[in-house]
């Protein structure tokens, strides 16, 4: 077990190292200059700017310095915001994570319930409903869903009832979190519910369920202790990628609902050629993905004793 964990952590560090290296040299190869805007500063000022951010040194020296700084937890100063990247990532990710976790909780709880109920009442109206939800969730992109929700459930609803029920945009109070969490979570909800339904149907036909029934266990006990617990395994499997997708896929939702999360820094920094921000957000997201996958692998062992974690 310990060996397995250590090995996985070793791979994770190696992956991060390659990520940092590749991103570092790729962003340096992007055409353009971060300090040339619509206006071009004087040559002396440009030289001062380069010196300030260490961009006047040879690229290999910059790379080694950067690696050293990253090891010390220093992601540098943003060229755009003139503030430490770490500070911006911390405060912005706190918002993205808040939104992501809300979306995830919503997606998993509702998704598992919907999937389980659909399987139990196979062919019934709940099954059809879950199918429709899944279809919508999978096929409608979150930005269209977000815009529609915003227009109908915030603007139109508020106008109809005469006071604010849900906020159109912004971040800070509960009214502002409902729609973005819904829009962000629906896609995952669809995946979870479809997966849960399939898995549940499979489990319900297993021999041990029949045994349990033969033993005279109550229906509730069979469903919750035996069926759901076994059927949920595939859902747990996809929790790693799903969590990562929800946490990193917030850019469009953040943009539509004007939420100060990390997504926009990730995408805008490339456009602005904000080298330190590109590096910082990439390393952060990379580390996040790796950690998510790692945690899920370890969780396996706890939920399903049959899975042996070996090196």
């Amino acid at each position: 077990m310990l060996r397995y964990v250590l090995k996985r952590i070793g791979y994770a560090v190696l992956t991060l190292f390659f990520l940092i290296t590749i991103v570092f040299f790729m962003m340096r190869a992007l055409p353009g200059d971060p300090f040339i805007g619509d206006k071009t500063p004087s040559p002396t000022t440009m030289a001062n700017m380069r010196a300030k951010y260490g961009l006047d040194k040879p690229v290999t020296v910059q790379y080694l310095m950067y690696l050293g700084n990253v090891l010390r937890g220093d992601l540098g100063t943003s060229l755009t915001y003139e503030r430490p990247v770490v500070d911006i990532v911390k405060s912005a990710f706190a918002v993205s994570a808040d939104l992501g976790i809300r979306a995830l909780i919503f997606a998993v709880i509702i998704g598992v319930l919907l999937g389980a109920v659909a399987a139990i009442k196979r062919g019934g109206p709940m099954d059809t409903f879950s199918m429709v939800v899944a279809m919508i969730g999978v096929s409608v992109p979150s930005f269209i869903l977000g815009a529609l929700l915003q227009y109908f459930l915030a603007l139109k609803l508020n106008q109809a009832v005469g006071h604010q029920v849900l906020a159109v945009q912004g971040w800070g109070n509960f009214k502002q979190t409902v729609l973005p969490a819904f829009a962000l979570g629906l896609g995952s909800l669809a995946t979870v519910s479809r997966l849960m339904r399939t898995s549940m149907l499979d489990v319900l036909n297993q021999d041990y369920i029949k045994t349990a029934r033969a033993k005279g266990l109550s229906r509730q006990k069979i469903l919750w202790r035996h069926a759901v617990r076994n059927a949920i395994m595939p859902v747990v499997t996809i929790m790693g990628p799903t969590t990562a997708a929800v946490l990193t896929g917030t850019f469009v939702i953040e943009s539509i609902f004007n939420i100060p999360g990390l997504g926009k820094y990730f995408s805008m920094s490339v456009k602005d050629l904000d080298f330190t921000m590109i590096g910082g957000t990439t390393i952060f997201y990379g580390a996040l993905l790796i950690v998510c996958t790692l945690i899920v692998d370890l969780l396996y062992g706890f939920i399903d004793p049959r899975v042996k974690l070996e090196g």
């Binding site: 915030a154 508020n158 106008q159 159109v168 945009q169 539509i256 004007n258 926009k264």
Partner: peptide, 18 residues
């Protein structure tokens, strides 16, 4: 002073009294 990255959101926020 609020920043918006989406013109449609901005309009909805204006119409919604935000």
């Amino acid at each position: 002073f609020a920043k918006y990255s989406d013109a449609n959101t901005k309009y909805n926020a204006f119409a919604g009294g935000e």
